[in-house]
Design a protein around this nucleic acid. Structure first.
Lengths: 137, 137
DNA sequence: TCTTGAGTCTGCATTTACTACAGACCCTAT
DNA sequence: ATAGGGTCTGTAGTAAATGCAGACTCAAGA
């Protein structure tokens, strides 16, 4: 029963804890409009339910996959819009996949240079350091 | 003689053009103290020389290799301090190399998930999109 | 000589995606 | 009753630039 959310719902900190999201980030996502404004208690405390947990997990998962907020917003629009077209989602995913692959390639080049640079270096006290030479050239 | 900088030096836009750096970024690097304050003309225009070109190239190259500004500052301190120890530089490079490798590994995992997700998707108009399912799960 | 257009100067605002306060409430347990 | 947590709001700060407004300067053409 640990996972079940009853009628009383969750407080902000509980939602944060359940999703692993930072406490303040929840409020931020509400502010920028990717999380809905939740109902409030009489005294103004936010109350979250199952659907908020799902939505926040969706957002966090997308974030982990490197989507920008605008990218996530686009994905959510599709979800919210009830669009039946999978094609758009696929296209966005594939475009993002290309970005990720490009980034991997860039980092691969950087790795090569760094590794070569570090390897050249004896680590001894010498007047000219090959790392600095490489960077400066 | 295109590359030679005479006594008259370069204007900011010329330095930007030679190094491929954004015009405003030069001023920013001066402000945060990684580029020196250059001499000025009587009317207050900055004047740059060979040494400024070298230093900016060093900074940009380090940036391309993914060093943060603080990382670059550290490298420059070593250069400016005239420290004869190559060991420190090597250590920083290797630490950074480890970071880069970790980032590549992360992106590799993301790539796997994205590729698998996109592959599952037919692109047709179906009520449930596997990409959204994956993200939402 | 005057004007026009391009370049420069300064400081400030904007960007992305959060994170962290401060100061005021609220709620529960002792 | 009070102590401690939690929550609320709005605002400020972070990295690393980038962009802009409004004033100034400079060189070339009419």
């Amino acid at each position: 029963m640990i996972d079940h959310i009853g009628e009383k719902g969750l407080q902000r900190a509980e939602l944060a804890q359940r999703t692993g999201c930072n406490l303040e980030t929840i409020r931020y996502y509400e502010k920028i409009g990717i999380m809905p404004e939740p109902p409030r208690t009489a005294s103004g405390y936010r109350v979250y339910y199952e659907r908020h947990v799902s939505r926040l997990r969706f957002i966090l998962r997308s974030r982990e996959l490197g989507f920008t907020i605008e990218g996530i917003r686009g994905l959510l629009d599709l979800v919210d819009g009830g669009t039946q077209t999978c094609a758009e989602v696929k296209e966005r995913t594939e475009r993002h996949l290309a970005d990720v692959r490009a980034k991997i390639a860039d980092l691969g080049r950087i790795e090569t240079v760094l590794a070569a640079t570090a390897a050249q270096c004896s680590g001894e006290r010498v007047p000219e350091c090959p790392v600095l030479e490489t960077l400066g050239s």
